[in-house]
Design a protein around this nucleic acid. Structure first.
Lengths: 215, 215
DNA sequence: TGATGTGAAGCGGTTCACAGCC
DNA sequence: GGCTGTGAACCGCTTCACATCA
């Protein structure tokens, strides 16, 4: 185990490993080797070992990893042993879909509040989640101990929403607005940009295919 | 201009550049330098030049790039000069939200059909888009000339849906199922995994913050 | 023997720095 | 003078290969 900076690529994979282990556990597996994991889930065994080794020596030589034990380690590493309270800013189609999506599938994240500027939406509920006036953002964040924000507003409003989020002291942001945003200070933002994904697929479709069927 | 393999990171950025140029054009800019682009949108000027140079010599030394001209080049490179027909598989919350999302914002993509296995949903419409029986997939794909598929079904069904898509001859897939999928043959798949994004944010939140406010 | 943990090699992408051109 | 296009340097991630240990 080394004390060095962990790359985001590694933390992303940690999340994948946890998912794989959950599946193995549900099938009753007690131990698994890095090679076994790699084969089943199309991963690279050396990478699995290296990623895990950043955080500790979880394996047993000649045996592999104990599934349940490693799951617990991963949950702790990923901070999934504590509950996260999520605010969704933007109660349009995307925002409301996300409200349900997280609520249903993610046990460690719960959507505590939604926000919008549209008077017709304020006060309504999406499932159990109330839509608040965006002007009450800081107050509600504080009251409900919200520590994750999701930006689901149209692109032109995204930067100012991000600043609002930053001012409220939230450190983790998931952004769906298709626009480069400037992040200030000690805030982590992840952007999910569907336009980029689609246009990149479009690029692929526009390429001539070789005779062997590969690019 | 070199003849070499273009990385996906580059094509992703091409999409970003196009967006930036669209914004500049709407503000009436006629020319822009790589440095100007970089400064305004928090990019790297050398990378912009290098990315563009993979596809041609679009710039003029001492001047920069002509905005409208470069936009046209980028659209053509990204295959955005032709219409793409999209099928969404899974008419749940996410699928229906996406149906509207694309229809509203993306001019070169149009959602032609949705699919589900739930008899109660089949025949209904989301906006203008009809929900078909998943068993009619191949037929509808052929009839409507669908060339992009979106997987918005629960994880356990995703692999078999992907195989259905592949069999129907579709080459571009956008996957929202949080699970590693095995892609066969000449198919390009992009995965948008919200669980990974969230858990990676959770990891960040779990880290101790240094006194200088940086990691 | 079998699988981990890890130094070293390999590879790909980013950034630098400058020659070349308008 | 200003900005592009690009070889070279740099950097970080991935993969290999093996010493190490149960």
């Amino acid at each position: 185990m080394k004390v060095e900076k962990i790359s985001e690529l590694t933390t992303n994979r940690m999340s994948v490993y946890l998912r794989c282990l959950n599946e193995l556990a549900s099938k009753g597996a007690k131990t698994v080797s890095s090679d076994g994991l790699a084969k089943q889930f199309h991963l690279n065994s050396a990478q699995i070992r290296k990623d895990l080794a950043y955080f500790g020596e979880f394996g047993v030589r000649g045996v592999g990893y104990y599934v349940d034990e490693l799951r617990e380690h991963l949950k702790k590493i990923l901070g999934l042993n504590t509950e996260h309270c999520v605010a969704i800013i933007g109660a349009g189609r995307l925002g409301t879909a996300l409200a349900d999506y997280y609520g249903l599938t993610q046990t460690n994240f719960s959507v505590a509040a939604m926000f919008d500027a549209d008077k017709n939406k304020i006060g309504n509920k999406v499932g159990d989640v109330e839509i608040f006036d965006i002007r009450d953002f800081a107050r509600v964040v504080k009251k409900d101990k919200i520590n994750v924000a999701v930006i689901a507003v149209p692109a032109p409003f995204a930067q100012s929403v991000l600043e609002l989020i930053t001012k409220a002291g939230i450190k983790a942001v998931l952004n769906f607005a298709p626009i480069p945003l400037k992040v200030e200070g000690d805030v982590k933002m992840k952007t999910v940009d569907l336009t980029i994904s689609l246009e990149s697929l479009s690029y692929f479709l526009a390429q001539p295919v070789n005779s062997n069927g590969k690019k």
